[in-house]
Nucleic acid binder design. Sequence first.
DNA 1: CTTTTATATAAGTAAATAATTATATAATTG
DNA 2: CAATTATATAATTATTTACTTATATAAAAG
Lengths: 105, 105
Amino acid sequence: MTQTVEPLVETLKLLADNTRLTILALLKEKEMCVCDIVDILQTTQPNISQHLRKLKKGGLVIETRKSQWIYYSLYLEDKPYLEGILEELPSMKDDIRKLNPDCCK
Amino acid sequence: MTQTVEPLVETLKLLADNTRLTILALLKEKEMCVCDIVDILQTTQPNISQHLRKLKKGGLVIETRKSQWIYYSLYLEDKPYLEGILEELPSMKDDIRKLNPDCCK
DNA sequence: CTTTTATATAAGTAAATAATTATATAATTG
DNA sequence: CAATTATATAATTATTTACTTATATAAAAG
């Protein structure tokens, strides 16, 4: 084949997973630290860390350290073709409201 | 979690594969029969048939039989959020031009 | 400076998915 | 209707990917 869809497929693979797409839906609401995400998704910390690493490597999120916490936020400026999907994500406001208030403190 | 991204993930999984996304890129140009797709993607007929079955089950393509050939075409009317990705797909015109002219005859 | 807390990484296991090989069905043609 | 062509399905194998468990690092607090 002359043209290839491969780079696009790599990005879509990052979205095509329940855990990662939920993380993106969460980060769409606001930036979050790892412990917040672990608290909401009810899985292990290494599992979330590994998904975040993939999202970071794929250029979908960026991280900023604030003392001991590392905050992740969406970075989709260079991928406007994902806008439709971003809008299709369900609201995570209810889950964020129920966050353990002792997390990140 | 209250809300879930699951149905969206199922659709994204269909896109997040080289073979399937290339099929979609081809069908974006025009409807095609299975032998055309096999010819271009250089893989086996059962492999293509099984990918087409998934795409059909996921509601991304529809089929219409024309005597012994079964033509597949895109069906994305009900998924406007995929428009951005559709536009991001590379052109497959070159590959279609090189199609074996004895195919589907 | 030792302990705790937050996060990352590595190694191994389990599960999901794609590709292959073999066979079946359905329409077409001689 | 037997042979051919187009496509589908089933079973198996191979590959990829997510998850788990164990361990490492880095900052903060006592």
